[in-house]
Each structure stands twice: as C-alpha cells, then as structure tokens.
Simulated assay, not measured.
Amino acid sequence: MPEVIFNGPAGRLEGRYQPSPERHAPIAIILHPHPRFGGTMNNPIVYNLFYMFQKRGFTTLRFNFRGIGRSQGEFDHGQGELSDAAAALDYIQAIHPDSKSCWVAGYSFGAWIGMQLLMRRPEIEGFISVAPQPNTYDFSFLAPCPSSGLIIHGDQDKVAPPKDVQGLVDKLHTQKGITITQKTMIGANHFFTGQDDVLIDECADYLDRRLNGELAEARPKRLR
C-alpha cells in the first residue's frame, strides 16, 4: 500500500492509498477519530474500514489530519480538519479523474467531519458513520442530509450515548429522498472493545447491499 504525501491547506498531509485497477472505480475516504485523544489513520477500525472498501474494488485513501504523524499544521477543532478532508478528496480525484462517485466513512470525530464533507461534495453517494457524537458536535448542518448511509453505534457507548445518537437518526428519518440505516450493536462501547470484527462485518454487509442496489432510494445524480 503506497504511502503518500499531498498538499493540504496547512501544509503536507500524510496518507495511505490503495488504487483500484479499474479506472472508473469509486473512491472511499476514511477519516480517523479525534486527534487530541490518540486518533490516527492507523486506528484499527479506520484500518479495517480501509481494507473493507479496498476488497470491494474501491480506490481507497486514509490520512492523518493536520498535526498528526507526518501531517503538518495544528489541530483546528474541526474546521481545518474538514478542509483537510476536502483536500484529500481533491487529491485522489486528481489522480482518478474517471471516478464519478465517492463514499466517506468516519469513526467518532471522523464521522462528524465525514458528514460535513458529505454536505459539501455532491459526488459522495454513501456514508458510514461509526459512533458519531451528536452530544458533543453540532450536526444541525444536515439540513437536509443529501445521501443515504449507515449510522452504527453501541448500546453501551458512554462517549456518544445511544439516546443522543437516536435523536440524530430520528431527525434524519424525517427527511425524504434518502434512507438512513441504523445499527445498534448490543454490548458495544465507543471503542467496540472485543467487537471490532462484528463492527466491520456489519459495515461490510451494509456496503454489499448498497452496491447491490438496496437500502437507498433511487434519485437523480447530484452534480459536482
């Protein structure tokens, strides 16, 4: 898997990139947890999501937000990290101009950034949000959420309490034209301790069904 360094808004960003041999293959961007609490692109859940997409023929990129690993810059409380994610998508699209669609997956803090990226980039047609934190971060920008996706979390999550995640899901369920799939994992905490494999299996099942034309309403393609 090639190590890549690409330009971001605050300096160089470090990533890991796996191209698909198919020139029209979709792109997947994977976003890591909070940089101030040990989050990096090598987080096991981020790593396994990366390979989940790669095994299904996606051109896949994960990277360190500013100030982490070899990525330059300093933590910017989300605003700069969103710009980093947009730069990462620009970078991979420049290499793969024939790719017309994209997915974004994020874990915890990365889920918040990923949902914001979804609002900015119409080519993103699906998302996977692992343990989002609507109790900590403002998700009101999802007005409306433009794409169908999966929200997956644990019923023992003390960092992102299930009642708060449920409130976000209920709000999204009122929107027309998209399908939000929710999966609550029994016994799972915010870190999915001892349940990493189950988490990835659930995400893979969702992705496979989406790729098979299920779990999303047919709608006109958004334009960049």
Rank of each mutant, 00 (worst) to 15 (best):
M1G: 14
V4A: 03
I5L: 11
I5F: 09
I5P: 06
P9D: 01
A10E: 09
R12K: 12
R16W: 00
Y17A: 00
S20T: 02
S20N: 05
P21C: 05
I30F: 09
P33V: 01
G57V: 08
F58R: 02
F58M: 08
L61K: 02
F63C: 06
R66E: 10
I68E: 07
S71V: 03
Q72F: 08
F75Q: 04
H77S: 04
H77M: 09
E81G: 08
Q93D: 03
A94G: 11
P97I: 05
D98Q: 05
C102P: 10
F109A: 08
I113S: 09
L118E: 13
R120L: 07
R121L: 11
I124Y: 12
G126D: 01
A131C: 13
P132K: 07
P132D: 08
Y137M: 13
A143Y: 06
C145A: 12
P146Q: 01
L150T: 03
Q156G: 10
V159S: 13
K163D: 14
L168R: 07
H173R: 15
G177V: 04
I178K: 14
I178V: 14
I180V: 12
T181G: 12
Q182W: 12
M185K: 14
N189P: 11
T193P: 02
L199E: 10
I200Q: 01
A204I: 08
L207M: 06
D208Q: 14
L211G: 00
L215K: 15
R222P: 14
R224W: 15
